[in-house]
């Protein structure tokens, strides 16, 4: 279970998170939606302890991780797997070395680790590419390898940072299917951040809308679809007209 409570974070004078509260139950699939620059990435980085909040706490299975020292934080992070927006594959290593990185680091023999990597790659729909370098892969394949790396150490929680951004719609849908498959087959809790509503509706058990540093609405995909909140409504229908102002843009209807 992940519980974020009263999270505040500023960068210089820019107050990004302003008291975020979020509860993700075990086995749930939470999708946080929000515009560019709304602080979604900052939120997800707090959940895995990559950033320290100015105020507030993040509880993972009841343990507050915001005050932990590096060593304990690394322990907690073994529960997590994270898929980065650009996959963040280590470009000095082959695909299988990437996938089995956490395993070889914790002492697994290379031969055995390679077998596990091949098995994880098969799980995300890839085969025969284990000896390639990341630079030889397409965007969609990189994301899949990133996902294989995230699940290699059998985490209980998966975090997805904009899983469908930057790939074509068909590949994006295939990634959505994979995210659902991960939840069903591996029984993981997942938190995804995205601004792709199609993807959100498909993968979410619950959706939370982050606006101006706060979660202003959350509910099941059906509840969100039928929302009466004008901000949420504008965001999910993707309209330029409405209460949400686009920074630096003056919009007038002809």
């Amino acid at each position: 279970m992940i519980e974020v409570s009263g999270l505040h974070k500023s960068f210089g004078s820019h107050h990004v998170l302003r008291g975020v509260d979020l509860l993700v139950e075990d086995g749930q699939s939470m999708v946080v939606i929000g515009g560019s620059g709304s602080g979604k990435s900052v939120l997800i980085k707090h959940i895995i302890g990559l950033l320290k909040p100015d105020k507030g706490s993040v509880f993972v299975d009841g343990e507050d991780i915001t005050g932990l020292d590096a060593r304990h934080l690394y322990e907690v992070r073994r529960k997590f797997g994270m898929l980065f927006q650009g996959a963040a594959l280590f470009d000095s290593m082959t695909v299988w070395e990437n996938v089995s990185f956490a395993l070889t680091r914790s002492g697994m023999k290379p031969k055995e680790a390679k077998e596990v990597a091949i098995e994880k790659l098969r799980l995300v729909g890839l085969s025969g590419i284990e000896d390639l370098m990341p630079s030889e892969l397409s965007g969609g394949m990189r994301k899949r390898v990133g996902l294989a790396r995230a699940i290699a150490h059998q985490p209980q929680i998966l975090l997805y940072d904009e899983p469908t951004t930057g790939i074509d719609p068909i590949m994006a849908d295939a990634i959505n299917d994979l995210i659902i498959k991960m939840r069903e087959e591996l029984n993981v809790t997942s938190v995804a951040i995205t601004h792709d509503m199609q993807s959100a509706y498909k993968i979410a058990g619950r959706i939370a809308f982050l606006y101006e540093g706060n979660i202003i609405e959350s509910g099941t995909p059906d509840e969100i679809k039928s929302t009466s909140n004008p901000y949420t409504k504008q965001f999910i229908t993707g309209s330029a007209q409405g209460p949400i102002k686009i920074e630096g843009v003056e919009l007038k209807r002809a």
């Binding site: 980085k45 895995i48 302890g49 990559l50 590096a70 690394y74 322990e75 992070r77 073994r78 997590f80 797997g81 994270m82 980065f84 927006q85 650009g86 963040a88 594959l89 280590f90 470009d91 990185f101 956490a102 680091r105 790396r149 995230a150 150490h153």
Partner: peptide, 13 residues
């Protein structure tokens, strides 16, 4: 390219 963050998430300093 977030590879340093990725190292952190894989419990590697």
């Amino acid at each position: 390219t977030e590879q340093i963050d990725a190292l952190e998430t894989l419990s590697t300093s």
